[in-house]
Deep mutational scan, measured.
Amino acid sequence: HDTTVHINGLRIEVHGASEEILKWIEEAARRGVEAEEIKRWVEEALK
Rank of each mutant, 00 (worst) to 15 (best):
N8T: 04
H15Q: 13
A45P: 00
I38K: 00
K23I: 08
E27R: 09
I38P: 00
E44L: 15
H6I: 15
I21E: 01
H15P: 11
A29L: 15
L10R: 02
I38N: 00
G32Y: 05
R30Q: 12
H6Q: 11
H6L: 12
A17T: 04
E36L: 13
I21G: 00
R11K: 13
K39P: 01
G32Q: 03
E36A: 12
E19N: 10
E27L: 13
E26M: 15
E26C: 12
L10Y: 07
R31Q: 10
R11L: 13
V14A: 05
T3L: 13
R40Q: 07
E43S: 10
K39N: 04
T4K: 06
T3Y: 12
W24E: 01
V5T: 04
T4M: 08
H15T: 14
I38V: 04
A28M: 15
G9T: 03
E36P: 05
A28E: 02
E43T: 13
V33N: 01
E13G: 05
A17N: 04
I12F: 07
H1R: 09
E34V: 10
V33I: 10
E19T: 11
E36T: 11
L46R: 03
A29E: 08
L22C: 05
V42L: 08
V42M: 03
E43Q: 14
E13H: 09
K47Q: 10
E27S: 07
I25G: 00
G16Y: 07
H6V: 15
I25S: 00
A28T: 01
T4E: 09
L46M: 11
V42D: 00
K39A: 09
H1Y: 13
E36R: 08
I21W: 05
T4P: 07
W24M: 05
K47P: 03
L46E: 02
E37Y: 14
R31D: 09
H1G: 11
G32H: 03
I25H: 00
I38L: 04
E37P: 00
K39C: 06
W24V: 02
A35L: 13
H6M: 12
V5K: 05
E37R: 08
E20Y: 15
R11G: 08
W41T: 04
A29N: 07
V33S: 02
D2Y: 14
R11A: 14
W24C: 04
L10V: 14
I7M: 04
R40E: 04
R11I: 15
L22Y: 06
E36I: 11
E20S: 10
R31S: 10
K39D: 01
I21P: 00
T4D: 07
I7Q: 02
W24F: 05
W24G: 02
E37H: 07
V5F: 05
W41F: 10
I38H: 00
E34I: 09
A28Y: 10
K47S: 10
L46V: 06
E34T: 14
A45N: 07
R30T: 08
A29Y: 15
A35S: 06
N8E: 09
E34S: 14
E37Q: 10
L46D: 01
W24A: 04
G32V: 01
E13W: 09
E26S: 11
W41Y: 13
W24P: 00
E19M: 14
A45R: 12
G16R: 05
G32T: 01
E36Y: 12
E37N: 05
V14C: 04
W41C: 05
V33M: 12
E20T: 09
R31H: 08
E44A: 14
R40P: 00
G32C: 02
H15N: 11
E13V: 11
I25Q: 00
W41A: 05
V14K: 01
N8P: 06
I7W: 05
I7G: 03
E37F: 14
H1I: 13
K39E: 04
E19P: 15
E26P: 00
I25F: 02
V14D: 02
L46T: 06
V42N: 00
L46C: 06
V33P: 00
A35Q: 04
E37I: 12
V42P: 00
T3I: 14
